[in-house]
Amino acid sequence: MLYAADLACLKGDRLLFRGLSLQVAPGAMLRIAGPNGFGKTSLLRILCGLAHPEAGEIRWNGRSIASDRESFHRTLLYLGHAPALNDLLTPLENLRFACAAAGDDVDEDVCVDALVRIGLADQLDLPARVLSQGQRRRVGLARLFLGIRRSLWVLDEPFTALDAAAVADLATTLSDHCAAGGVVILTTHQDAPFAVPPTVLDLSEVAA
């Protein structure tokens, strides 16, 4: 259960939103909506603990994420706008590093399976700089297909640059995660075929 109360976000000297409260129960999916520049990404980064809110507090399972960072980050999987790929490493090396850095012990076979599943079987040994935009995006998303038990997924525009089949596949994976009791919070501008339509939080309603 993710609970945030009375959040405010200041960007430069502009107040993006204030008095924002939200609550996401296990098994629920929350979509943050709103026009560009209304603080969707800022909100996601605040919810992850990457940025500090100007006011308000966030609790995960009843405990403040600021005071219990370590165990919160053990249950969090955040995929930001940048896919966190190094151009000199292969997709497999990038994926394995991402897992190791996050403290997940994942076998190489599992990583290969995940990359094959998302359609990168032919690119396993190529440096990431030769991949297309959509393929880079897929490598970034591959961590979602590893079956790691992290209950809170926070995804910034996960569907960008993906083709229709990949969008459907990802939507199914996200729906399955929720069905298994996980929490998904995402931003997106496009309609995806979710099993259960997500709850929508519109930032233009809380804009300061």
């Binding site: 930001g80 991402a98 996050a102």
Partner: peptide, 10 residues
């Protein structure tokens, strides 16, 4: 490239 964010979330 965003790797730093991921490392900080470790």
């Amino acid at each position: 490239d965003g790797t730093l964010e991921q490392l900080l979330l470790s």
